[in-house]
């Protein structure tokens, strides 16, 4: 009886994780695609040099963004199986991608909100929130901190605005 109860809870958590996790992920990717479609017109570079800065433009400033995404129970379960056999952990791959894209999108939006039209020296780094990543609780989360310098440019980006794809 007790075994059945434990099994029931595990199955419930797995289904909960699978359903809510995949809904959250789909929604997030949809939002990201829309935002990135708008953001593509901003000049974004990783170079440390200011590409054609506007003479007499606004003084450059630092912009930063943070993003912490949690995994779900189903993904943790899958990855534990994967750990046994080894190989690519696809379930965590999308988690990293979401965090990075979100951090980048936030940087660009922040720069635009302050009236700049370009960002350079974009850095995306993982951060350690103590106990979150290597803690005993094994809470799996990805923390990304993004840093960039916003400035005004005279360069025009030729990228076409990308229309938001319909979600499958």
């Amino acid at each position: 009886m007790e075994l059945l109860f434990t099994l029931g809870i595990t199955v419930f958590l797995l289904v909960l994780g699978l359903v809510s996790g995949s809904i959250a992920e789909k929604r997030h990717f949809k939002r990201l695609r829309q935002r990135e479609g708008l953001n593509i017109q901003m000049l974004q570079t990783q170079s440390k040099i200011f590409l054609s800065p506007k003479p007499g433009g606004k003084a450059p400033t630092l912009v930063h963004s943070e993003m912490v995404v949690a995994s779900d129970y189903f993904k943790n379960f899958l990855s534990n199986i994967r750990k046994f056999f080894g190989g690519e952990m696809k379930s965590y791959h999308s988690l990293m991608e979401r965090a990075r894209r979100e951090a980048l999108a936030k940087i660009i939006e922040q720069a635009r909100a302050q009236g700049y039209n370009a960002v350079c020296n974009v850095r995306l780094e993982p951060a350690d929130i103590a106990g979150a990543i290597y803690g005993k609780k094994a809470a799996v989360m990805v923390c990304i901190i993004g840093t960039a310098t916003a400035y005004e440019t005279t360069m025009v980006t030729t990228a076409q605005p990308v229309a938001a794809e319909p979600v499958k």
Partner: peptide, 27 residues
């Protein structure tokens, strides 16, 4: 709350805020 969020997935707003606040203060 973060512990529960780890079951269902999604952004951990509390920790994101924590990082943002810390960053502002450090700067």
């Amino acid at each position: 709350a973060a512990g529960f969020k780890n079951l269902v997935g999604g952004e951990l707003k509390g920790y994101t805020e924590l990082l943002t606040e810390s960053r502002r203060q450090a700067i």
